[in-house]
Design a binder for these strands. Structure first.
Lengths: 203, 203
DNA sequence: GCTGTTACTAAACGCTGTTCAGTAAAACTG
DNA sequence: CAGTTTTACTGAACAGCGTTTAGTAACAGC
């Protein structure tokens, strides 16, 4: 009676096949450049077949968003092992920005896409993001506890730092830094990060 | 020989008619919800007529982007008359964020839309944005000159402040603040702004 | 071997942005 | 005013999109 199990497995493999193809195409052409027919062609099935495994295009987006969230978690993971909370916070911020700069499309998907957010909050992707965010807030809390800040408003401190990092990456990702020569942009971003670290010390 | 002038004028009026209709529709339904046929219906012309006045949909977007830039300039204009550079800077930041919160669709269009940026840099909209940005940088420079900051890296200071404000607004606009209860979001944004002002004092 | 289920697809639908051939009015010319 | 050209506009179409449906061929169970 292993047929049902086999079918189940094949179904899951097919879902993964679609996702992998979508992922590859996305890295090549960006999100806007990919459509269902492209994905279908890549896996050598008809477009209609896709809809037997994913309700609609959004569901594929959500799955990719989850992959992006996992990639981000892995990228910032090294920061978690830093003992000192202050240094951990700095390393976390540095890696967060580094992730956004190196994977603008994923960052876009996670934080800038206008995809319908209503249906996403109970999903794995959002949970994963929340977990990373919780780790971030906990690190800020540890810094507050150890008197690295004058302020004790953990929530506001965390949000302020996040605003800076997110603003930095998204201005870069969405190309709103054009008033600065291209070869200065990364340097400016680095100086800005250092500056925020200094600012934070007297917060 | 006033016919040519009249035709010229009528052509300009038609362009404005299209733009006004697009603007109204956009405020109602958001950018994604508006298409050429909607605009055509609103002005009671056929869709093809639109293309006699605007090369393509992007050109209409650019024109709307210009309107958004003008609206933003007008919104932050009161800050320009503040004498003291430090207070001017704070007021400018406050109004910038206020604009983003009150007109998320316009802010989106100006700073978050993935519209092709290549063709925009020589246009009025970009010039307008540059002018506002220049005013911002000049204000930071005035603060630097009057020793409001310890640092003298005007560029990095300006960019850091912009990152924070932009991050704050865009997290709000693109609904990535869902981990905070809705009624706390504005308050958190305010606390974060106050915090950044404090941080900046010891920069 | 027959029957019902499953996996898949060709073709279509309705929606986009955009183009083009055709038309009727307006402007120019004599 | 009559004849010609130029202008302003449109209906119908095209290609590309996400998605649905009717139908088919292979498979599973008896």
């Amino acid at each position: 009676m292993g047929i049902i199990q086999r079918k189940e497995r094949e179904k899951e493999e097919m879902r993964q096949l679609i996702l992998d193809a979508a992922h590859d195409l996305f890295r090549e052409k960006g999100y806007d450049g990919v459509n269902i027919r492209h994905i279908a062609e890549a896996i050598e099935y008809s477009p209609a077949t896709i809809y037997l495994y994913y309700k609609d295009k959004n569901e594929i987006y959500y799955a990719l968003q989850f992959m992006a969230a996992a990639a981000k978690r892995d990228h910032v993971a090294p920061a978690m092992s830093v003992e000192n909370p202050w240094e951990r916070l700095i390393e976390f911020g540095r890696l967060y920005i580094d992730f956004g700069m190196q994977h603008p499309d994923w960052y876009d998907l996670l934080f800038l896409t206008r995809a319908p957010m209503e249906h996403i909050e109970n999903q794995e992707c959002w949970q994963l993001g929340l977990a990373t965010h919780a780790f971030f807030v906990e690190t800020v809390q540890a810094c507050v506890d150890q008197r690295y800040f004058k302020s004790t408003d953990t929530q506001a401190i965390a949000y302020t730092l996040w605003c800076h990092a997110h603003g930095l990456v998204s201005l870069f990702v969405r190309e709103r830094m054009r008033m600065y020569p291209e070869d200065q942009r990364v340097d400016l971003a680095n100086r800005s990060f250092d500056m925020l670290v200094k600012m934070a010390t007297c917060l």
